[in-house]
Simulated assay, not measured.
Amino acid sequence: MSLSKIKIKANSSEKLILAGDIGGTKTSLAFFIADKSSLVLKKTQTFPTASADTPVELIQQFLNQHKNPPVSQVCLGIAGPVFNGTATTTNLPWTISEQELKIRFNWNQVSLINDLVALAYAVPHLNGDQLLPINNLPHPNHGNIGVIAAGTGLGEALLIWDEGRYHPCASEGGHKDFAPRNEQEYRLHRYLTKAFGHASMERVVSGQGLVNIYNFLKEDLSYQEPRWLAERLSAEDAAAVISQSALNKQDPTCIKALELFIQLYGSEAGDIALQAMTFGGIYIGGGIGPKIAPALKNGGFMQGFLAKGRMRELLEKIPISLIHDSQAALKGAAAYAQHRP
Rank of each mutant, 00 (worst) to 15 (best):
292 I>Q: 01
30 A>K: 04
142 H>S: 00
236 E>W: 03
271 D>I: 02
248 N>I: 14
242 I>S: 01
298 N>P: 06
44 T>G: 10
178 F>Y: 03
217 L>I: 12
98 E>H: 07
195 A>D: 11
222 S>T: 14
242 I>E: 03
160 I>S: 04
142 H>D: 00
193 T>S: 08
182 N>P: 04
136 N>S: 15
13 S>D: 14
67 K>V: 11
84 N>I: 05
20 G>S: 08
328 A>T: 00
271 D>K: 03
154 L>E: 04
93 P>F: 09
158 L>F: 06
225 E>I: 11
175 H>F: 13
9 K>G: 14
86 T>Y: 08
104 R>K: 12
190 R>K: 12
163 E>R: 00
74 V>K: 06
318 I>C: 04
114 N>Q: 08
183 E>M: 11
14 E>L: 05
148 I>K: 02
88 T>C: 09
231 E>A: 14
311 M>R: 12
6 I>S: 05
96 I>V: 10
170 A>H: 04
151 G>M: 01
298 N>Y: 12
128 G>I: 15
284 I>W: 01
225 E>Y: 11
183 E>K: 11
7 K>G: 12
222 S>I: 15
126 L>D: 01
319 P>Q: 07
71 V>N: 13
331 K>I: 01
325 D>A: 02
308 K>N: 04
281 G>L: 10
72 S>T: 05
15 K>L: 15
268 E>S: 15
282 I>R: 02
271 D>V: 05
228 W>K: 14
290 P>N: 07
75 C>Y: 06
80 G>N: 07
70 P>T: 10
175 H>S: 09
62 F>D: 03
50 A>N: 12
162 D>P: 11
74 V>R: 02
251 D>L: 06
34 A>P: 08
224 Q>D: 14
275 Q>N: 13
216 F>C: 07
273 A>M: 05
152 T>Q: 06
192 L>R: 04
82 V>C: 04
304 G>P: 00
245 S>D: 08
336 Y>D: 05
137 L>H: 01
189 H>D: 12
206 S>N: 03
62 F>T: 08
18 L>Q: 01
175 H>P: 09
127 N>S: 15
174 G>K: 04
327 Q>P: 05
111 S>Y: 09
155 G>E: 07
76 L>S: 09
274 L>D: 05
141 N>L: 11
175 H>G: 03
272 I>M: 15
268 E>N: 13
97 S>I: 07
187 R>P: 06
291 K>N: 04
129 D>A: 10
73 Q>F: 15
33 I>Y: 11
319 P>N: 07
312 R>N: 15
153 G>P: 01
225 E>D: 13
104 R>Y: 09
293 A>K: 05
219 E>H: 14
6 I>D: 05
228 W>M: 11
93 P>N: 07
182 N>Q: 03
57 E>S: 13
278 T>L: 04
222 S>H: 15
59 I>H: 08
14 E>M: 08
187 R>F: 15
284 I>T: 00
185 E>G: 02
79 A>G: 10
165 R>Y: 14
329 A>E: 03
1 M>L: 10
284 I>D: 00
211 V>L: 11
197 G>W: 00
253 T>K: 09
255 I>V: 13
8 I>V: 08
226 P>D: 14
214 Y>C: 05
295 A>M: 05
44 T>C: 13
259 E>R: 06
81 P>D: 14
135 N>W: 02
109 Q>H: 14
6 I>H: 06
236 E>F: 06
31 F>Y: 14
218 K>I: 12
75 C>H: 03
267 S>V: 11
169 C>A: 12
142 H>V: 00
200 S>K: 06
66 H>G: 06
